[in-house]
Design a protein around this nucleic acid. Sequence first.
DNA 1: AAATAATCGAAACATTATAACATTTCTTTC
DNA 2: GAAAGAAATGTTATAATGTTTCGATTATTT
Lengths: 162, 162
Amino acid sequence: MSKPAFLPHDHNHQRCIDAALAEARAICQRKHSRLTPQREQVLRLIWQEHRPIGAYELLDKLREEGLKAAPPTVYRALEFLQENGLIHRIESLNAYTGCSHPSEPHASQFLVCQQCQRVAELGSEQIAEQLSEQARRAGFASAHQTVEIRGTCAECLRHFHV
Amino acid sequence: MSKPAFLPHDHNHQRCIDAALAEARAICQRKHSRLTPQREQVLRLIWQEHRPIGAYELLDKLREEGLKAAPPTVYRALEFLQENGLIHRIESLNAYTGCSHPSEPHASQFLVCQQCQRVAELGSEQIAEQLSEQARRAGFASAHQTVEIRGTCAECLRHFHV
DNA sequence: AAATAATCGAAACATTATAACATTTCTTTC
DNA sequence: GAAAGAAATGTTATAATGTTTCGATTATTT
């Protein structure tokens, strides 16, 4: 995978959304996973935000779009999207964000900006390896890593002199 | 700091508890932080478990010990203990665990066993450094790292052949 | 002792997540 | 294309986690 990237605040985000949805459709078709209209709608709503979005925020947006949805509706969609690698859950925020390169399995470490709330994936296999290795030295067999770094992104550093 | 350690399942845990409480009292005295009876009680209850414990579990235990406690009682104590580096919050479990070496500030990565629910601290400055460095290359200023590895500890690997 | 700050009590409320079970829709098989 | 089975969705209720607010109490300082 490529380098981590916080896109400029003013980039054309519609392109991100369109690309993400197209990629998701392709992936699900390949895997015979059923990206139903509802699931795609949730994925689109997630991508429409620039920042991780909570389950109940999603629920509100679904309702704004006319769907008669209850919490399980959202959580089921989120579960499907996670299982298919299309979104990530940010544990430290209880929120969900679109995966920026869902086509290949990858290590995922997250940079979470405290100013603008945006998230970027680091995706360093090296770090993932090293974590697994250090764990192994303690006799521990790693199954899944949660790596989230809070801080300030480059753009916010410039703007706010934090 | 020293090597990460899952102690044997059958170690004398009372010693861990006593040592942790003694160290906590010393630290708080040094810092003029007020380790009140309630706060110490919460810390003890956390150490009495071998695994991370949730806020509401703690609440139940406080009540079992005769305290008339409400959620804020617990959360305030947890906040104090965290601020003073005496406990850690495990984000992926929404639960709290005693810090195994509170006297010195340290990097903290956690190994979380899915079988026995116990947690060990990795404490690798090297990994912490590397994460900060990778973030910095993306122009990102790190403030806090959450690193949690789910998997199976050595003892559970032997016992359960997972 | 009075003033100030820190801690605690209590009630209400807010947020996040799941359980249980009925119904509908899609897919497969005949 | 009809029946059977599997997957997805609807619905209601509830569990689990976390916060706000405000008043009372206790500790510390002056």
